[in-house]
Design a protein around this nucleic acid. Structure first.
Lengths: 182, 182
DNA sequence: ATCAGCATGTAAGGCGTTACATGATTCA
DNA sequence: TGAATCATGTAACGCCTTACATGCTGAT
C-alpha cells in the first residue's frame, strides 16, 4: 500500500521555494493550500524532525538573538524526494462532503430541510469563491513565471468547481421547490 | 468539537430504507455513495454493535437455517437520531486531492510532468463520469419519488463537478502546452 | 471438487486533530 | 500592562484502513 502521509511533501514543496519555520509553514498551509489540503502543528513539527533526521531538510537556527526560532531549508536529497513524488502518477483524490451525505439521505425529512442545507452550503461556497478569485487575480499578472502558472492552475481548478457547485445549487433548489411535499 | 465519525449516520441512513446485513451495507457504500464517502468492514461491524447497544438499530437474526447472517433494522429512536443529524446545518466538507498538491508544487519539475499528471486525472474522471451518468439515467425516470429525487440530486452534483473538472483539464493542458519550458 | 463470492469479525498500525503547556515579542 | 500574535512542542484521543482469521454457499 502506498504511504498515505503527504504532509511531508507539502513541507518539502513549501521549502523548495523559501526558508521557513514550522510556524510559517502552518500559515502557508492555511492560505490557498487549505482548499485542498490541511495541516496542524501536531503533525507539522514531528514531520519536520523526521525530515531532518532523514536528511531531507536542514535547520538554520537564528542563534544570534537567543530567541528560539528554527528556519528550515530543503537539501538536494529532499528536492529529489519531492520531484519523485510529483513524477509518480498515482495520486489519491478524495472528496468527503457531509452535505452530500445529508442530501443523499434527505428523503427521510421534509424538503425544506434539504433546501436549507443547500442554502448554507451555497453561502459558504460563494464566500470561498470570492477568496479564490482574489488569489487568481494576483497570479494572473505573471503567468510566464512557471511557479505562478502552477499556482494559478490550482486555484483555477477551485474556481471552476465552485462555479459548478453554485450552478448545481440553483438547479437543485429549483427542483426541490417545485414539489409540494414540504 | 463536533463528533467526526459519520459512518454511523451512513448506516442509519441505509437502514432507514431497508433491512441490511453488515456485508450488504458495505456493498451499498461501495456503490454511488463511494463518490463522497467510504466505509470498511473494520469500521462498519464495530459501529453496528455500537448502534445496537444504543438502541438505534435491532438485529433480526435469520435463525432458522443456522447460517450466521445478521440483518439489522432501524428503530424509532435511531430514525430520530438520523433526522436530527440531517437537520443540523453544520457539516464538514473536505476535498483532499493529491493531484492538486502535485500541481501546486509542479513548478519544480518540467511542464510535461504536470501535463501527464493532468491526463491521468482526466482519464479517471471521464470513467467515473460515465458511471455517474448511468446512475442518473436510472433515477431520472422517477423523480416524483422523494428518495429518488434526493439520490438524483446527489449524483447530479457529482456530474456537474466532474464536467467542470474536464473543462478545466482541457484549459490547463492548453496553458501548459503553450509555454516552451518542457 | 473447486473457486468466487457471501458473511462476520478482530488486531495492529497509521495518521491527524485537539487540547494543553510554555514562553517571547510587539503594539496599543 | 495587557492582549494578540509569534513560536515550538507533546500527549491523548479518535477514527479509519489493512491485513488477518474463519467458515459457509452456490455455481461450474
Amino acid at each position: 500500500m502506498a504511504r498515505e502521509k503527504k504532509i511531508d511533501m507539502v513541507i518539502l514543496g513549501l521549502l523548495s521555494h523559501e526558508q521557513l519555520t514550522g510556524y510559517d509553514i502552518k500559515k502557508r498551509i492555511d492560505g490557498a493550500i487549505s482548499f485542498f489540503w490541511n495541516g496542524s502543528f501536531g503533525n507539522i513539527y514531528p514531520t519536520l524532525k523526521e525530515l531532518e533526521t532523514n536528511g531531507f531538510i536542514t535547520r538554520k537556527e537564528a542563534t544570534s538573538e537567543g530567541r528560539e526560532k528554527i528556519s528550515y531549508k530543503i537539501t538536494p536529497s529532499g528536492k529529489k524526494v519531492l520531484k519523485n513524488w510529483i513524477k509518480d502518477e498515482q495520486a489519491s483524490n478524495e472528496l468527503k462532503y457531509e452535505t452530500l451525505l445529508k442530501l443523499f439521505f434527505g428523503g427521510v425529512e421534509k424538503r425544506d430541510v434539504t433546501y436549507h442545507n443547500i442554502e448554507v452550503f451555497e453561502d459558504k461556497i460563494r464566500d470561498d469563491l470570492g477568496l479564490l478569485r482574489s488569489y487568481a487575480k494576483v497570479l494572473e499578472k505573471d503567468l510566464d513565471n512557471d511557479d505562478h502558472l502552477h499556482y494559478y492552475l490550482t486555484i483555477s481548478f477551485g474556481i471552476e468547481s465552485y462555479e459548478a457547485y453554485l450552478k448545481w445549487c440553483s438547479k437543485a433548489k429549483k427542483m426541490l421547490g417545485k414539489g409540494e411535499k414540504r
